[in-house]
Write a protein that binds this DNA or RNA. Sequence first.
DNA 1: CGAGTGATTGACTTAGATCAATGACCGTGG
DNA 2: CCACGGTCATTGATCTAAGTCAATCACTCG
Lengths: 204, 204
Amino acid sequence: MVPDVSSIPEPLLAIAKPQPLTAGDILFRPGDRVRDIFAVETGRLRLMRYGADGRELTLFVARAGDILTEAALFAQTYHCYAIAEVASQAIAIPKVQLLNYLQSHPAQMMAWLERVTQTVQQLRTRLELRNIPTARDRLWHFLTLSVPVGERECTFDRPWKAIASELGLTHDALYRALAALERQGFIQRRGRWVRWLDYDRDRR
Amino acid sequence: MVPDVSSIPEPLLAIAKPQPLTAGDILFRPGDRVRDIFAVETGRLRLMRYGADGRELTLFVARAGDILTEAALFAQTYHCYAIAEVASQAIAIPKVQLLNYLQSHPAQMMAWLERVTQTVQQLRTRLELRNIPTARDRLWHFLTLSVPVGERECTFDRPWKAIASELGLTHDALYRALAALERQGFIQRRGRWVRWLDYDRDRR
DNA sequence: CGAGTGATTGACTTAGATCAATGACCGTGG
DNA sequence: CCACGGTCATTGATCTAAGTCAATCACTCG
């Protein structure tokens, strides 16, 4: 199967080094020198770091096609861990060559810029999410963001526990919030599968 | 005085339209078509929006020299309000011309990209901050981020109330946290001025 | 001088964190 | 093949910290 890293231009793909990973492998850790920019061909990587108080923060979950270190392009060292959540295949593109390539291909650089700009929007959305004070409303908002437009159900590819940490909740609180939403008839669920029963966000 | 928008290249400054604002003026609101990219020459603008539950979220506080809508470069419409917090002078650069200029000046585009990438880092730092559960620790972390390296004191240019909302706290909680830090001998303060008394972050 | 905002603190309420216990499921090795 | 250890899922009891409500004071601005 052709790798689905469509966002990376051909000539760079040509020089990319494949990087097979098994679940739990650490691709890089804070302090490591940034030599390469990585993308995910298959599987799932998680970018996370430990906050000042020791609790962990998930920065980003990269799936097939995602570039995971766009933000490291101008950095000397990484500031987070990259951990394979499942067996994955990553590719590494030497940073210097990437920079040179972009310099001489403005259209590609523009595309890259657009992607980074999107990241900014996503992070702001996440900040907005974090601004919602109650677990139930936060989860509800997250769920409505997660369901593809027009769809009425979706199945998450990672445990609720992971989602809890993305939302800044303990897993306990998350399960309770899930139970509340189900009890109140907003959603129906089985394991990681969720169906929306009510689209009226204003209802309490 | 020469406008301190050093990050914007000369030719673009030449075509920038000045935009004087008095305190409280709204430069744009959600839904407005993105025609221009704005930068702040003098004063202070705040980017904010209302979350799903009606509470307000400050996305960014732009000061002299800052570009406030980097993330809007590829957007059709704005997704937030831009409000002058004090009398300010902004400049507007037509988006299309900016895009064209960047396309044909790779070095400038690279600089722009670097700036957006920095924004990503900052947002992640903010997200990390929000991950800290207690008001006191969150505030403490924020304060240590706010003081210039090597300095032992700083004076904030905006009310604590605004800082509270940046931190995702009610102003009540913030004042209490401030009082606690002062009582415990970590800081000393008078109004918006703060001095650090203890740099040992591990101490409780 | 009165209105509005920021600053500050107390009393009360509540929602989430913490602790704890249990069951389901899954892969692994004896 | 099954016992065992690990992670995920789930729920109850308790505690605590932040939100909410409320009152007061200082300050600025027209």
